[in-house]
Every structure is written in C-alpha cells, then in structure tokens.
Amino acid sequence: MKHIIVFIEAKDSQSLKRTSHEALTAAQSIAGGASITAFAVNGSEQALQSAGNYGVQSVVLAQHELLGSYSSTATAEALAQYARSIDADIVIVSGNATGKEIAPRLSVKLKAGLLPDCIALSGDTTSIAATRPVYAGKAHITVHSASGKAIIALRPNVFTAKQIGSDAATITAFSPNLEASHARVQVISTMKNEGTLDVAEADIIVSGGRGMKGPEHFPLVEQLASTLGAAVGASRAVVDAGWRPHGEQVGQTGKTVSPSLYIACGISGAVQHLAGMSSSKCILAINKDKDAPIFKVADYGIIGDVFEVLPKLDASLKAMLHG
C-alpha cells in the first residue's frame, strides 16, 4: 500500500492553519487507496484532532525536548525519520514560510523529488504530477518525481479545503531520535503584524496602485477593504514611493497571494505585479485605461476613474451585503 504524510500546523489551541486544511484535502484528492497520516511537531489535542474534519483519522505527534521551540532543521529530521519508518511515498506540506524551509531538506534526506509551489496535482500516488507557475506566471510547467517518492509543497490558498468528516482524529506519539546538532537553528520569538489583516492570509484583497495618485487617497481603498473584511494590498510602485508599507506589497518582490477575490484599483498590471496575484480565484480590476494589461487577467473589469468608481462600488457592495 502507498503511504502519504501530510505535515500539519496548529493555528491556535483549537484549530489547524487553513493551509493545513488545504494540504489534508489535497492528500484526499490523490490518495486512491493510499493511507494518509498527518504529522505534527506541536499543537493541542483539540487542534490536532480536528484533522478528522478533513478526512484524516490518524495524526502522529513527534515529541522531543529539541522540538520545544520550533526548529526547521529538527522538524525536517523528525519528519524524515517518521517517513522512513513507514516507507512513505509522498509527503505533502503547505508551501508557506515554514514549508518552504522544510520541504527542500526532506527532498535531500529522503532522496525524493521536490515539487514546490504546486497549483494543481494530477494522477495518483503511483504517478503524481504537479503543475506550477514559472517565469512570473508567464508559463506553467508540469513535473513529476523521477525517484518514485515525492515531496509536494502547495501554493497557499490555491487548493480548496473541504470538510468531509466530524470524527476526531486519533493522536499517536512518535519519538524521533534527535541530537542537539539537529536543532542548530531555532525560532526565538514571533511577532504578529498588529491590527491589520495580512495580504498573505486574506480571503479578499483590495490593492491600490499608482492610479491612486497619492497616499492621501488610500482611505478609498481602505474603506472598500473594510466593507468587504479584506486586507489592503499595494503595488510595487506605491511601496517604492513610500505611500504604503512593504508588508502590503503584492508581486514578485512582495508577496504572492491567491485570495478568492482580488480587487486591483488603479493598478496597470506590470508583469511583476501579475506574478504575485494572477493565481487569485477571481480578479476585479478598476482602471481608467481600457488597454491596461490588468484587464487581460481580470474576470471583471470596470473602466473608469478610481476616484469615482470606488465610492460607488463601496455603496453598491454595502447595499448588497447589508441591504
């Protein structure tokens, strides 16, 4: 029988990260008759049991004093040891900041082909193929592991998570054989960006570009974001001009996002920007230039002046959502 391991992370004491839900659902989609085991290095009982809601009944929790504070190297080693112990064929991780550090290490440790930044999976556990954007999304490649074993990292927010069960998963302890040298890099602390919703985690993003003409006009963008419960994003031009903080930048030198809805306000759609948002599920563009490249990737477009359109759009959305 084939074996799939899904690396999961807790969001808080009750639940898993959404990216973990996506990974669990993706595992189901390729499983066929394969077994699926979720693997964690931390998380409360309640959070880990919730993997059952996504159809995975077995969770393995690695326990070791060196896993006390998060270490990417110790986590990768523990996961590799578990993967060897069950002769796993596929390991699925989210391609978030954590996954991007452990997936390449797993590939080397297990001599398994690394399939990073996946936006689509096809085939099954015997011949898995992964598609991902390259050249800033200007082309897609489909790759498969030549070694039979694969490490798959999923681009966050692209795969839709599906709740398919309500039974709590069973948690089994696993004791990896770790030494101090495995934990030479450790997280000392994490800081949350206060107050604002991060574009990398938001389901809806309202972004402003040079067409907003100055930082003093961004309240129009913020207002629309507030109506939709969305995060505020920005193009490189406005971040470079100092109108908005770097944390909001969407694009090749900023963040890659795939929200359900991306609203581009006064953004022409330079390649660098498209690279960061073209995998959004739905794109609405507002621009006064009908030939702006952003309209080529948009599902919906409004050709008009952002200063007139944004207040009208906000009022219309409010009427629809609250009316």
């Binding site: 978030n96 000392i188 994490t190 960006n193 990398a200």
Partner: peptide, 9 residues
C-alpha cells in the same frame, strides 16, 4: 512569515 515576522537564532 505570513502575518508577521520571526526572530531566529
């Protein structure tokens, strides 16, 4: 990292 920063040693 998503939603913030991480300090590592």
């Amino acid at each position: 990292i998503e939603g913030g920063k991480e300090i590592l040693s």
